[in-house]
Simulated assay, not measured.
Amino acid sequence: MRRDVVRRLTEAGFVNAALEGRWLVEQVAGPSADMSVPLAPEDADRLDALLTRRLAGEPLWRVIGEREFWGLPFRLSPDTLEPRPDSETLIEAALATLGPRRGQPLTMLDLGTGTGCLLIAMLHECPAASGLGIDLSSGACEIARANALANGVGERCEIRQGQWTEGLDARFDLILSNPPYIPSRDIAGLDREVREHDPLLALDGGADGLAPYRIFARSLGGHLAPGGFVVLEIGAGQEGDVTAIMREAGWCHRATRRDLGDHPRALIFALH
């Protein structure tokens, strides 16, 4: 069972064939299954279907249907990005900035929420907080709502379809966003697993990749509560440009937090 899956992945050139093979088999048979026992015919068919998708180039976590973020499981759909470990840098930055405030009844806003991973992780860490996630995609909103319920924060988490802060009149103690930040011209050169399976809506940041930050610079101030702050994810080489855009609009750059590869990933801004 597992041996055949690993063999086929290895022959296809997958570097982590053994690990991926185990995950695919466990997705069907369960983590405690006896690997020496043949699968029932319907389970064998399901495993073969999953393997066929992976061999065709679909990313592993999309084949499995969920991915872990901040120790929590998140369902995926074609309308959402996969939560990635580097984005956990935003959670680290937000929690470090909050300090002892994390126990207070804070309000949080996540723009372009996708799976809801940023907002849900923060609500998980801040048990008295409540939050609103906004996404332009109705499919992403549906998945985010399901993930909020599955991770036990559904009663404190509202998900709304919309374009950034349009029509919003509330103020928040924390605003988070992992916006699309890839320049339009670079989309075609992305890795195949990203280019063909991640939603374009969540990737394309306009001509220079900075379009969302220009919107944030002029719009987020009206939605920040006194003492509040903003945490934004950025792409490679964007720290200087994003900081300049925000500063020109009156924002103070509080700090930068680096990701697992030691690249600037999370920028923290406040108005004072």
Rank of each mutant, 00 (worst) to 15 (best):
M1I: 06
A150V: 01
L224F: 01
L111E: 13
G71W: 10
L260F: 14
H263D: 03
L76I: 09
P226S: 05
G222Y: 03
L267A: 12
F229D: 02
L19V: 11
E20V: 04
E125R: 14
P41H: 12
R22V: 12
A255V: 08
P105C: 12
A217Y: 02
R46D: 00
L260Y: 15
L76S: 00
D34E: 11
M122S: 14
A202K: 07
A270L: 01
G116I: 06
P179D: 02
S177W: 09
A266W: 03
G222Q: 08
G13H: 09
R214M: 00
D86I: 06
G133N: 03
V28P: 07
V37D: 00
Q27W: 02
E88K: 08
L39D: 08
E11A: 15
P183T: 12
T89L: 00
R7Y: 09
H197L: 07
P179K: 02
A93W: 04
D262R: 11
I187F: 11
E142G: 08
P38Y: 00
I91A: 02
V15N: 00
E158K: 11
D198L: 04
M246V: 03
I175V: 15
D45K: 11
L119G: 08
A236Q: 03
T165R: 06
A150H: 05
T10F: 12
L176K: 00
E58L: 12
D191K: 11
Y181F: 15
G114Q: 04
W61I: 00
V231R: 07
P100M: 05
P41D: 15
R53H: 07
D79R: 05
R171C: 13
D45S: 11
A150C: 05
M122R: 11
T80G: 10
I268Q: 14
M1H: 12
I91E: 01
N178W: 11
T10N: 11
G65C: 08
R257H: 13
Y181T: 13
V242G: 11
G235Y: 04
G21F: 10
D262M: 05
E239Q: 15
I120G: 02
I215E: 04
G71E: 08
R54I: 06
H253R: 14
A188P: 01
V231L: 06
D259E: 08
L210A: 06
L118A: 09
A128N: 14
E196G: 05
D4G: 03
E82D: 13
D110Q: 10
G71H: 07
H124L: 03
A129N: 15
E155S: 14
M246Q: 01
N16S: 13
R258H: 14
A93T: 01
W61P: 00
D48H: 02
H197P: 00
M108W: 02
T256E: 06
R8C: 11
F216V: 01
M35C: 10
G57S: 00
L168Q: 14
M108T: 14
V231N: 07
T97H: 13
G235V: 11
R84G: 10
Q163T: 14
A44C: 01
L132Q: 08
R2W: 14
W70Y: 15
L24W: 09
D34F: 09
I187Q: 10
H124A: 15
T80F: 04
P78Q: 10
L47F: 06
P180F: 15
F216L: 03
V242R: 13
R214Q: 06
Q163G: 08
E142Q: 13
G133S: 06
